[in-house]
Design a protein around this nucleic acid. Sequence first.
DNA 1: TCTGGGGTCCTAGGACCC
DNA 2: TCTGGGGTCCTAGGACCC
Length: 419
Amino acid sequence: MNQIFALVDCNNFYASCERVFDPSLQRRPVVVLSNNDGCIVARSNEAKVLGIGMGTPYFKAKDVIEKNRIAVFSSNYTLYADMSNRVMQTLCGFTPNMEIYSIDEAFLALDGIHENLDRYGREIRKRVLQWTGLPVSVGIARTKTLAKIANHLAKKSLKANGVLDLTQNTYIDLALERTPVEEVWGVGRRIAAKLQKQGIVNARQLAQMDTGWIQKTFSIMTVKTVLELRGQPCFDLEEVPEPNQNITVSRSFGQEIESIDELHQSLCSYVSRAAEKLRKQGLCVQGLTAFAMSNRFHTETAYFNSGSVIFDTATESSLELVQAIGPLTQRIYRDKVKFKKAGVILSQLVPRDKVQLNLFDNRLNRDRDKVLMQTLDKINRRGKQVYFASEGVVQPWKTKFERKSNYYTTRWDELVKVC
DNA sequence: TCTGGGGTCCTAGGACCC
DNA sequence: TCTGGGGTCCTAGGACCC
């Protein structure tokens, strides 16, 4: 079966989401910041032209930002998740065979489409823009890796104007030649540097490399990448997502903390958030790790510590997890350290209905816990926050979001008003 | 002064066993 | 006390993705 993949990718997703609900941003450059307003993680095209790089620390770009009246936003994940859903719903209308690859991208199987693929891609683009207000680019090819490349070029090239069909062999070589090796999906900084040292600077050269040498020098993953560049599919559409193997919740603090109480509060807060995610996926957890660290950029005072517990019986109870945080905090805390970041990792996850019961399970009230958690989740789903006292009330460590836009789509009092 | 978060997969090397 | 090799399992660390 000859497969055809379309990669649909939202342009500058977070920045575009902000624009949808604020027309005054239409011609202004826009950037969106990471958690804690730390780095720039999304830029409108105008901001890119001004030379603002992906991942630039906000404070380093402040001069350019002020000089050019760039609009700055903290991340508004609630808004972006909602907009992402709308995009994915729209794409569903084109094919049921779809893989949601990330918050702003999806692979679509276009095998059965008999009409002109370029025209079909333009129809996708038009409808998503019309229904959601978000601009997307569409790359079409016979492997996922080539679809990624087609998508890149569709974004960059004026002639392509948002859609590029690379299913015809005639154009593939040219497209590969125009793609720097570091832009190939699966080739990161390290592998790119090594390849460039060998004189391999574009995707076309990479496609021609001996796979034996690639396997020896890198790994089986890079071999697959090379084969995909040659048009030989190695990665399938993954329509049903695999369940998570880990759930992590970690944050940088709004300000550094030194007291064990505050560290404990933050970890309790993160673990209860992680437990929510856990229950939402119908999973229980057996391994819990907590970690805390100082500012990683101050290498001379660097501190990192972590501790783990294994539960005898896998649990989904926030109560049990929060209780376990106490001793873990004791273990990883150290006097006089300025903590900048902490987090928890849930590992050894098992589906709720496959939990092995332990003969010596001595935790009482497991059933009562279960009902309590259901109630807790139900209340918090409606927006009202119920949380553990151990998470603290003042929370001076809380992550900063000082320039967040409104929850335009999920809160009645923050809807856009048309006057 | 200010520098994100959440994932996956692969490999090398150590521990352990026979 | 010394000697060897092969297999498996686990973990830490590296590399990648968005």
